[in-house]
Amino acid sequence: MSQGNMRLKLHIWRQKGASAPGAMKTYEVTANEHMSFLEMLDVLNQELIEKGEEPVAFDHDCREGICGSCNMVINGHPHGPQRGTTACQLHMRTFKDGDEIFVEPWRARAFPIIKDLVVDRTAFDRIIASGGYVSVNSGSAPDANEILIGRDDAEEAFEYAACIGCGACVAACKNASAMLFTAAKFAHLEKLPQGQVESDRRAVEMVMQHDAEGFGACTNQYECEAACPKEISVTSIAMLNRAYRRAALSSKS
């Protein structure tokens, strides 16, 4: 075997469509340690196409860790074993020759499977649409800079805004809760003066939509934070808990 090559046994979830039954199927593939995880799947798919079989469907777009598309649970870890890394940025040198790798889609009632590893994450879009925005017109860049924002607050807002909406938090959570996503999208606005105007309504509407989508409840195990490729802090969840409690207890209706 040539330099850096490895023979792998893959167990991949195959499912023809949303309502079709699915099952784990085993494949063998030769990959190189310099490949990304997705490139290794590309190699497998090329072999499947040449054999006249259906290639494994998986979402991917930028392949540079910022689009949040390449969603797969690798050996029980969303985006694989490496912290702060999306599946496309995960390199095969993380594995070794002879490894067995399990590849599964995000598992959540709110993320129905479309095909193989591809899930429907429009539930996230509906959570954003429910309140994850500001209604005020903040103008062009120079206008926005009229409002002074402390550096620490700006940095914290940026950290929450780094969420790429991939859904790894849901996939990692033992309760398939989307609290880290919802809280990150709430918190990045909460830390800025433009966001504080609609804070109460936002907290209520986003949690309500989160619940309506059928996500589970947070039990403070912090699997989400550990699995998040952007390493978003669960401090955002405490912030959302606090904001929603305040909104509920101070509401005039």
């Binding site: 167990h11 029980g76 598992r107 709110a110 309760n175 398939a176 996500f215 589970g216």
Partner: peptide, 27 residues
């Protein structure tokens, strides 16, 4: 009530389940 909701939120479990940092007590 929460436990039932949480169980319903993941109808199909992972074939290869793993835990990163959740304590035994929390689970």
């Amino acid at each position: 009530r929460l436990k039932r909701r949480n169980a319903a939120a993941r109808p199909v479990n992972y074939a290869h389940e793993d835990t990163i940092q959740a304590s035994f007590a929390s689970r």
